[in-house]
Design a protein around this nucleic acid. Sequence first.
DNA 1: TGCCAAAGGAAATAGTATAACACTGCCGCC
DNA 2: GGCGGCAGTGTTATACTATTTCCTTTGGCA
Lengths: 175, 175
Amino acid sequence: MTEPAPGPTAGQHDHKACVSNALAMASALCQRRGVRLTPLRQRVLELVWRSHVPVGAYEILDRLRVEDGRSAAPPTVYRALEFLMEQKLIHRIESLNAFVGCIDPSRPHAAQYLICRQCGTVTELDDGAVAAAIQEQARRQGFSIDRQSVEVHGTCGHCADPAGAATNHAETATA
Amino acid sequence: MTEPAPGPTAGQHDHKACVSNALAMASALCQRRGVRLTPLRQRVLELVWRSHVPVGAYEILDRLRVEDGRSAAPPTVYRALEFLMEQKLIHRIESLNAFVGCIDPSRPHAAQYLICRQCGTVTELDDGAVAAAIQEQARRQGFSIDRQSVEVHGTCGHCADPAGAATNHAETATA
DNA sequence: TGCCAAAGGAAATAGTATAACACTGCCGCC
DNA sequence: GGCGGCAGTGTTATACTATTTCCTTTGGCA
Ligand SMILES: [Zn+2]
Ligand SMILES: [Zn+2]
Ligand SMILES: [Zn+2]
Ligand SMILES: [Zn+2]
């Protein structure tokens, strides 16, 4: 119930690489942009990246208190999350009230999210066709887009086909 | 956003027709489906249809208490909303934690929502191209879709261009 | 008539998010 | 060096959203 870096796709990929890559990318981006990736912000980012399952603000809060022994209250977490979202280092999954690390923060994108009901894993896509179809519809309505959010709930390949994959995928990560 | 007759699209269309049509449709659908559109559920549906601006559960709750003098608590409202969602008579806008009437409950659809930041109006679309593009992407990932939610935030035609009004607010478009 | 299941009333609680104010350290400036 | 401003964080309180639990009422039906 507190395994460090489970990741629903555990065994499928080197998640430590995901994390260190994300942190390095974040550091570089912030430096380039002239914004401060403080220790707190970096730690929150790391906690969001704990797995590919979106994490709630209060779960982050708990970890800051329990694991880090840090004094923290909701605003502590929400401010860090706000910063990370402004910098596009994380995304908010509206339908879950939770946050997930962005796969490629260096490039602006209108992403789509595939959210598995069973394992909770979110797969971030960046499909031009989807974005274009949405933009075309918006244009017809005379609507100018600020932000589009596409959240698709369903069952991922691993959960649907346990035999084939034989993944240890199993159950949810941050339970 | 709290006046009796919905502000945003007022004057743009005959909203009373929207409401009475929605209520009639709901009544017919429920009868056909053998489910009960009780007075409470009908009233909640009516309150959701008060305008094309999504309405929160607690705003509905307030109106039930103040306008109807009815004894009501959160579960009262949430249960009614749950029923209405099961029957696809309303939709939940995840990014707003609010609910809006469905434009065409008789036909199942994966809808997209254009949400105006200024006036709050939500325009429901049912564009096959968007849904298809999403499905294609999901298929490639071996992901099977239960539900897709597309919420687009931006500025509607009326708010962007108050003078000219070529576009049709609040009405649905399908493709 | 009596039973059952669905619907709704009521109280408490859980979960999510923000407002408001205080404190500190850093930086540029005089 | 002293000073003012500001970003970042700490702290407390509160607002907003949603669910659990238990009980009572209602409506359909054998
Ligand atoms: Zn990973
Ligand atoms: Zn899965
Ligand atoms: Zn209308
Ligand atoms: Zn508008």
